[in-house]
């Protein structure tokens, strides 16, 4: 493993990461009042790594730009976006052409909601996607098997998206990823609004995929759901990752957590202390010189207001904080 890669733990040192995102920054050119154009920074200096057979959860509040990370990896950003940094896939740089070539084949997206399905197309056709005529029969068979596995009845494949219930939609969306035999699956907010049973089912589908050797990235705001299945959790805050923790760190009242924000997040869960810290996430056009968590941090010192803290390896995870050793 090259020295560049900062995020890695003992067990993963043997294998190379399937996807490496390094110092990714994303901004949008927008029109401000009148005719001036401004650049709005949405993601800054973000680094994560995804390993085959492992689940990485990216946890952060909604509207903080998590979904755009998925869109950046898949190369489906709008034309006014500016992307900087490096994305490596399987050891090679992932360029826009390469993204277009392998998305839907090696990289699959499980989108957020039904609106990603074509409302005028029958479900089975969408799951199979575009295939050559001679492969159609084979794909149909594969699709039936997958549907059977996910407890979708044969009549579902003739349905239109609006006829599906919430849980069924979720299963259909998951099967679109499964059928592509992807090596990397990115799930964008797969859980909101699901009751406990459906939630657990959905999470198990991702677990299955990881067990089969896929690298899975789950982007979610629901830290509880993330804890149930993932191996690592990247804590996303105001456009960057503050900490990558192992799931075990969240045990014992979260004492092993490194970043004050992660700890605050843990304490705010209803089954824990349900305790909120003051303040709000900085808005996208509010730029700070120091640590982005500075305003809300209880442990801040002078150093924190000067310069963004660099990633440090601490106890098998990484963290961006000056006060951790």
């Amino acid at each position: 493993m090259r020295s560049k890669a900062k995020i890695c733990t003992e067990e993963n040192k043997k294998t190379e990461a399937l996807l490496k995102v390094k110092d990714l920054s994303l901004s949008f050119i927008q029109y401000a009042s009148g005719l001036r154009q401004t650049e709005l920074k949405v993601i800054s200096d973000l680094s994560i790594e995804a390993y085959s057979g492992k689940i990485l959860a990216v946890v952060g509040s909604s509207g903080s730009g998590k979904s755009l990370l998925a869109h950046a990896i898949l190369g489906i950003l709008p034309s006014n976006a500016i992307l900087n940094g490096r994305i490596e896939y399987d050891g090679k740089e992932l360029t826009q052409e390469k993204k277009e070539e392998i998305r839907g084949k090696e990289i699959a997206l499980v989108p957020q909601s039904t609106t990603y399905l074509d409302p005028l197309m029958r479900v089975s056709n969408q799951v199979i996607g575009c295939v050559e005529k001679e492969n159609e029969g084979l794909m149909k068979k594969v699709q039936r098997e997958i549907f059977q596995k996910y407890d979708l009845k044969p009549n579902v494949e003739r349905m239109f998206p609006h006829e599906l219930s919430g849980g069924m939609t979720r299963r259909v969306l998951v099967s679109t990823a499964v059928i592509s035999s992807a090596k990397l699956v990115i799930a964008d907010e797969p859980t909101p609004g699901l009751d406990e049973k459906t939630l657990n089912e959905t999470l198990n589908y991702f677990k299955d995929m990881a067990n089969k050797g896929c690298a899975v990235i789950i982007i979610t705001h629901d830290i509880e759901a993330a804890l149930k299945i993932s191996d690592k959790i990247a804590v996303f805050y105001a456009g960057t990752v503050l900490e990558v923790a192992n799931v075990e760190d969240f045990k014992n009242n979260g004492e092993n957590l490194r970043h004050p924000y992660t700890r605050a997040l843990w304490n705010a869960l209803p089954q824990n202390k349900f305790q909120a810290i003051k303040g709000h996430q900085p808005m996208q056009d509010e730029v700070t010189d120091g640590c982005i968590f500075y305003e809300r941090c209880s442990k801040k010192n002078v150093l924190c207001s000067k310069g963004i803290p660099q990633f440090k390896d601490v106890n098998g995870g990484v963290v961006r904080c000056n006060n951790v050793s």
Partner: peptide, 24 residues
């Protein structure tokens, strides 16, 4: 915390952006 807005494209002469062209 300051509200910093990066101005990419100021004035008429530094190349027009689409909105300026449209208005023109």
């Amino acid at each position: 915390m300051s509200t910093a807005v990066v101005t990419v494209n100021r004035g008429v002469f530094r190349g027009l952006n689409l909105r300026q062209k449209t208005l023109l």
